[in-house]
């Protein structure tokens, strides 16, 4: 299998089941930071658990409070295991930068075009390395 490698936006290594969101999301209003689930009834992945997932997000929209939701997910231990962003999103990554300042456990973020992860299936075990490699295990 050919290696998929993206740009490392935030350092780290992770492994977990893959989940690709089916539509853009605003973490504020779209994710419950306590339960770690998709909370917007209008979203196609409504109810899906993101905690511990290698979460591929094609596009982020909406609230500037999404950084705060990211911070709370990390604080609560309900965050995804890694974020794979179709395009780098300053608001989500900010939540990680602040989390590190507060000594919370952080997770890796890789920027990678959505097409590049098209072969990965939801639920498949995927590993993210510190060099930005995203690979089915």
């Amino acid at each position: 299998m050919t290696e998929i490698r993206g740009r490392v936006v935030f350092d780290g290594e992770a492994e977990g089941p893959f989940l690709r969101l089916g539509a853009p999301i605003s973490f504020w209003g779209g994710v419950d930071p306590k339960s770690g689930t998709i909370a917007d009834p209008r979203h196609p992945d409504y109810g899906a658990e993101i905690t511990g997932r290698i979460l591929a997000i094609p596009e982020t929209v909406g609230s500037s409070s999404s950084s705060a939701i990211m911070l709370e997910l990390l604080r609560n231990g309900s965050a995804p295991a890694a974020l794979i962003l179709g395009q780098v999103d300053a608001i989500l990554v900010l939540g990680l930068v602040v989390a590190r300042e507060l000594s919370y456990k952080t997770v890796p973020v890789v920027e990678l075009a959505t097409e590049a992860t098209a072969a990965l299936r939801n639920g498949e075990l995927v590993r993210v390395t510190s060099s930005g490699s995203v690979q089915a295990v």
Binding site: P33, K34, A68, I69, E72, R75, V98, A99, L102, Y104
Partner: peptide, 17 residues
């Protein structure tokens, strides 16, 4: 500043820091 809205204790910890 939008960061004054409470979403959980992390935001409070940051502001207090």
């Amino acid at each position: 500043i939008d960061g004054c809205l409470y979403h959980g204790d992390g935001g409070v910890e940051f502001a207090q820091r």
